[in-house]
Simulated scan of single mutants.
Amino acid sequence: MESLRRGDELLTASMLMIIIIGFAFEVVDAAQPWATKSWGDAHATFYGGQDASGTMGGACGYGNLYSTGYGTSTAALSNGLFNNGFTCGACFTLVCKLESSRWCYSGGKSITITATNACPPGSEGGWCDPPRLHFDLSYPMFQTLAQPVGGVIPVNYKRVPCVRQGGVRFTLQGNPWFNYVLVYNVGGDGDVAAVSIKGSSTDWVTMNHNWGQYWSAGVQLTGQTLSFEVTLGSKISLVFWNLAPTNWQIGQTYEADNNQNFQ
């Protein structure tokens, strides 16, 4: 009986160790493709024409990428990277895999791009279909890595911090009873995971993720100064107090002093 009891204790201890190891594995392996900061494998194509005019607008809601500061250093991401719009604004460094494609330029050239659009299933000859990880680059970015005649190239990619000029920007849309806000020019992680809004006479109100980087809340804030709290995908948060004055207007953009706590 004593030997059986000891056997049961050993079995219980072994099972507990397996559970602990399994739990540790889950924690370590939690990084998603859009969040990984180690090199991963993907492919890239290009869209939008040589002047990148066809890359304006898109599923992140940034509109004219020149006026919003993103320019042509951009890409549309496949579903496996786009993360339902929560990856909008994130930055990635890409390197063409010279050993895997004769179209790559030699010298280990790299580019850093911002996610500004989605590359939906059925696009680019199926390269954007799940579960593929794919970057549909602007023509100027693709041309930096490889000869455009190649069409599709293998790349290594990883998340990198975003460096922005100026502060975080908030464009106010909607109407007096429906706050509809585009958040962009975010440094550091670049992506936005949560937004809250506060009037000078109200408590904080959690905004809903509408699409891309548009956030909404049904609350009457007319005639009040507006403050915002922005939380990145890494859970870093920053409050921008009294950013919009009492006479704020629909269609106006209000810019914070800086990005210093994000970058």
Rank of each mutant, 00 (worst) to 15 (best):
C91D: 04
F92S: 06
H43L: 13
N261C: 11
N179G: 12
Y254S: 12
E229R: 11
V192R: 15
E124C: 09
D203Y: 14
N258F: 00
K109L: 14
A76T: 06
C88M: 10
T116E: 00
V239P: 01
T202E: 05
W211C: 02
S53F: 10
R132I: 05
S234R: 05
N208H: 07
D41V: 01
M1C: 07
A31I: 12
M17S: 05
N210Y: 06
A256G: 10
M17L: 12
V181K: 00
F86I: 05
T222W: 00
I113A: 00
D29E: 13
L133S: 00
A35Q: 15
Q50I: 13
L11P: 08
F135R: 10
P121G: 01
F170T: 10
V168Q: 02
L10D: 06
G122T: 12
W39V: 14
S101A: 01
D189Y: 09
W248Q: 01
Q224S: 07
A217R: 00
G122I: 03
T225K: 06
N175D: 15
T222G: 06
T253Q: 09
G188P: 05
T231Y: 07
V183K: 03
M15D: 04
Y62G: 00
S234H: 00
N79P: 11
H43M: 07
L4G: 03
S216G: 01
R164T: 15
A146D: 14
Q260H: 04
L4Y: 09
G85H: 08
A75P: 00
A217P: 06
E255G: 02
R132D: 04
V219M: 10
Q32L: 15
L226V: 02
A13Y: 05
R164I: 15
N185R: 05
G57V: 11
A44S: 12
G22K: 09
L81Q: 04
E99V: 14
T87F: 05
T116I: 08
F46N: 15
Q249D: 02
T253S: 09
L232M: 12
S196L: 03
E99H: 10
G80P: 05
R169Y: 03
G22N: 08
A24I: 15
I113C: 07
Y184W: 13
G69M: 10
S200G: 03
Q32M: 11
Y70S: 13
Y47V: 06
G48S: 14
G150M: 15
L221G: 03
T55I: 06
S234Q: 06
A194L: 04
S200M: 10
A52I: 00
L221Y: 08
K109H: 15
N117P: 02
I20Y: 13
